[in-house]
Computed example of a mutant assay.
Amino acid sequence: MALDATFYALVGLILFFALIAYLKVPGKIAEALDARADKIGNELAEAKRLREEAQSLVAEYQRKRKDAEAEAASIVAAAQREAEMLTAEARQKTEDYVTRRTALSEQKIKQAESDAINAVRAAAVDLAISAAEKVLATKTDASAQDALFQKALGEVKGRLN
């Protein structure tokens, strides 16, 4: 009987499959694939957990940023209100100061005007008295001078009061 190569190939193939079955290669391959699938599943679950954690951190930081922005805005608004109050207060104080200084200046001007009028009156009175004395000294005697002087003095006192 002539055994051809096909027969030997078939016998070799059958022995090969028997050896694989005896060594339980398909089970080991299945275990390796299952382990690999479990590992990939675990990695996916870990990646999903990390992604969710990162999203929660992002959300928390965004909330904190918004809170910080709101707080900064309220601080700026408070500073603006305080600056406006200080400006208004300074403006009011300046106006009060100018008003007081103006009133004081007007009072000093009135006092100086009054002093000047009094000084002019006094000088006029002194000049009038001096002139009257000279005129009376040349035209009247001593008794008439005393009478005229007393009369003039009484008139001056009456006008000054």
Rank of each mutant, 00 (worst) to 15 (best):
E95G: 04
L23T: 03
A78P: 04
A35M: 04
L15F: 15
A131K: 11
I109L: 11
A73I: 01
K139F: 10
E31K: 08
A9S: 02
K151A: 08
A122N: 00
E106P: 01
E46D: 07
D67I: 05
K66C: 14
K24S: 04
A152V: 06
V98Y: 11
K93F: 14
L23A: 13
D67C: 05
A2V: 11
V58H: 15
L104F: 05
R63S: 12
R63I: 07
E106W: 05
E89Y: 08
T6N: 11
L148R: 04
R65N: 13
Y22N: 07
M85S: 13
E133I: 02
V11D: 14
V76Q: 11
Y22I: 00
K48A: 15
L148D: 12
A45Y: 04
E89C: 04
M85H: 12
A70N: 03
G154E: 08
F149T: 12
I109E: 07
I14E: 01
G12C: 00
E53L: 10
T94V: 08
I75L: 14
D38C: 15
I109Y: 10
F7T: 10
N42L: 06
M85V: 12
Q111K: 04
A77G: 02
L136C: 13
K28S: 08
A88H: 01
R100C: 04
F16E: 05
A132G: 06
V98F: 10
R65L: 15
R81M: 07
L160D: 15
Y22G: 04
Q150D: 10
V11K: 15
K24I: 00
E89S: 09
A128D: 13
K66A: 14
L3T: 00
D38R: 13
K48M: 12
F17K: 04
Y61N: 14
F17L: 09
